[in-house]
Nucleic acid binder design. Structure first.
Lengths: 248, 248
DNA sequence: ACCCTTGCAATGGTATGATGATTAGCACTT
DNA sequence: AAGTGCTAATCATCATACCATTGCAAGGGT
């Protein structure tokens, strides 16, 4: 970013003789400073930052600048700003949902097609199956079975939604017991759901077959049969992918 | 909104009779409005939003409020704000790299351990190998070979860096010819590099063996041998993962 | 004629001061 | 004892002013 063309004024050698004094915004500098404190662990979730006016004095800037910095931190999900007597900026940890939302916005603008995103999702969700087979506990399996039961009930009641399918896949990812994986899978479903909803392709029959495959997948997991689990998941994901490509 | 029944306060049914009049901040409302315009496609990448002062009039708010809204949009990577005569807020055309950076930032700030991120990366990079075997063109393979040659030269010159290894993996991902996948792989390397650099574990010997494995991997790809390619990549990633876990 | 400098205008960046809205805690009244 | 109203702390917004940066065009020197 800070290329600073540094057009040679007279000779060719003095490219960096006059270095910029402060290239960035002041508010951005404050944001960076707070982020650094977070990374260093000197600010932990639940901590309260000083009040706006106090921060003004500390940094020697105006309230507008401090507020802009807080806005950026808030938008990034790093702090939660509360008003009132004991209000202020409280440190939080960004949830996967917030991250997914930000990702969805960017993916919206990006030149990526739903097809490409779907393929990436296929790769990832298929790749975690061995981990799931290896690590799923009895509780995980029981929770998944319960989820499928709920979905089948919803299906018969006629109010099965795509987000239920997303819940299943997220819960499967949780069985890896790796939050990073769970978060990524969850993040994928945001943009994906949107592209599906936009196309208005909510076939109920789909849901029927989908939940059946979900159930079969759980059985394979319970039997610790990685091959079968992957085969089921592969086909299951492929059907969704086909649907996306048709609606594209 | 027109209350049909003036339920007296105190009964159990009037939970939502008096709904809040304005839940959100004004600046947040502006952000949402712009986001909606983006989703609807009425604002496209490259478009320029009206100037701050003009937006003030349009929305009927002060400039501070508009600026805070722009800050949020900028933090989300949705607009790019330029100063100067023909400056203003421009809708960004997100490159894969920019999206990857955003994702890396988010992963970075979330409470994930390097180990967890590394495992997610292993899953993903291993999962794309079949796609690479299937789709890599002669150009891809030639580019990869050239990359390895450069790395070996750098190795002998003593200035081999971890980012070179990252370049290799990114180039491999590019061979899937799916920008979404390429972007994700790229985004993984941000936090990973940081965690490795923090631990100061830049073993040159590592680089030697690493590039050898890179070369062997390319050979497997060229031979369209998915099994062998995956085996090599699996071991290669595992060694990196071990290093992370040791430095943790 | 060409190039460089300079001034101008548009625009974002920051500062300052003031006012309103919201909330927790406390004192006061019933 | 319970409810009520006050008060202080804090964020939310506004209005105005001034500075910095940038693109463009006019002007002057070669």
């Amino acid at each position: 970013m800070a290329s600073t063309k540094a057009k040679p004024v007279g000779t060719g050698d003095d490219t960096d003789m006059f270095k910029a004094v402060s290239l960035n915004r002041v508010s951005q500098a404050i944001v960076d400073q707070v982020k650094t404190l977070l990374r260093q662990g000197r600010l932990k979730p639940g901590d309260r930052l000083p009040s706006e006016r106090e921060l003004c004095e500390r940094f020697g800037v105006s309230r507008v600048t401090v507020r802009e910095a807080l806005r950026v931190l808030e938008a990034g999900g790093l702090v939660d700003i509360r008003v009132g007597a004991h209000g202020g900026a409280f440190v939080t940890t960004p949830t996967s949902q917030q991250i997914g939302e930000g990702l969805a916005d960017l993916l919206n603008l990006s030149p990526l097609t739903a097809l490409q995103v779907t393929e990436a999702r296929q790769v990832f969700e298929l790749g975690i199956v061995p981990l799931v087979v290896e690590r799923a506990t009895d509780d995980d399996i029981a929770a998944l079975r319960e989820l499928v039961r709920e979905h089948q009930a919803a299906l018969e009641a006629g109010d099965y939604t795509m987000s239920m399918s997303a819940d299943f896949h997220t819960r499967v990812a949780a069985a890896t017991h790796n939050p990073a994986i769970e978060m990524l899978v969850q993040s994928f479903h945001g943009p994906l759901l949107m592209s599906l909803l936009e196309a208005q392709v909510v076939a109920p029959l789909m849901g029927h077959r989908g939940t059946e495959e979900h159930a079969a997948f759980i059985d394979a997991i319970a039997a610790r049969d990685a091959e079968r689990a992957m085969a089921i998941m592969r086909e299951h994901l492929q059907r969704t992918a086909d649907r996306v490509s048709h609606s594209d």
